[in-house]
Design a protein around this nucleic acid. Structure first.
Lengths: 144, 144
DNA sequence: AAACTTGTAACTAAATTAATTACATGATAT
DNA sequence: ATATCATGTAATTAATTTAGTTACAAGTTT
């Protein structure tokens, strides 16, 4: 099991929009960099737009960021593309046997632990902005 | 997307083995508490056995823990049941366009961030033992 | 030998992902 | 105004994963 690559692609889209900010960033242009189908990109653009991260208009070519890179965290992207629901990174088996002490308590016992673990992961994402990502990409260019 | 419930079921199995330590904890008994099929349980028992957490023998009914609950962390269970591979909680799109500065750097940039996020989640699991889980189950019994 | 258990393989149904195709709708330039 | 190009979105597909189910071989005990 893995968290959908929609998340990674969402990051790719947003950083590329910024990278190409003086040009026109169409779904086809993005699709070529990501190496996927433009319709896949447009679906993701719809999610990013709904989350208020980008501005796109029907019929008008190109997407623009609505904020500075430094104001967008990876958590924002993660939520926007809907890869993991709240408290549902881990799934818990349904309908355990209530006649059993373990069965009738396991869900309540485990759920908060899972929520804490998920929260710790998400906290890392909250502490990284797209500006950090962009800086790393630029550094990769200079070194490589 | 969600991490397989094998993890939660694995925790259920181990705590129930302990809870029933003076009796015989067969796959059928476990299956009834978890509310699933005995073959599902046996498959999980195989994984827990392979990880050295339990002792089971062909033809002999019942499983036993090989360690104290306080020596088994949730991370041990998580690894045993193989729900998430190393560095693969998040997936990254393959084959981005190398002619693009973002495309050729995105993987290297994102991977360590994702690894850090996964690591933070796993660290929480390392800090909870099955003894903690058991205590919470017992507490749930006394209060509920 | 009969009864019971674990170990395992094969098959199924359901869910999710990513890709693909197609087309309606909106905007623009000639 | 109409041809052209972009976005928005729905329908379909193939691949993967999960959990459940059935079946049976192999080991153990009485």
């Amino acid at each position: 099991m893995s968290i959908s690559s929609r998340f990674a692609v969402g990051i790719h889209i947003l950083t590329l929009i910024e990278f190409n900010k003086d040009g026109i960033t169409s779904s086809e242009f993005l699709a070529s960099s990501v190496n996927t189908n433009p319709a896949v990109i447009r679906k993701l653009m719809g999610m990013l737009k709904k989350a208020g991260l980008i501005e796109v208009h029907p019929g008008i070519a190109g997407a623009k960021l609505t904020m500075k890179l430094s104001d967008i965290t990876l958590f924002d992207v993660y939520k926007a593309v809907n890869v993991v629901q709240d408290k549902e990174l881990f799934s818990i088996h349904e309908n355990p046997q209530l006649n059993c002490p373990v069965g009738r308590n396991i869900q309540n016992t485990i759920e908060p632990i899972f929520a804490t673990a998920q929260g710790a992961m998400e906290k890392v994402l909250k502490n990284v902005t797209l500006e950090d990502v962009m800086n790393d990409i630029v550094a990769g260019e200079n070194i490589g």
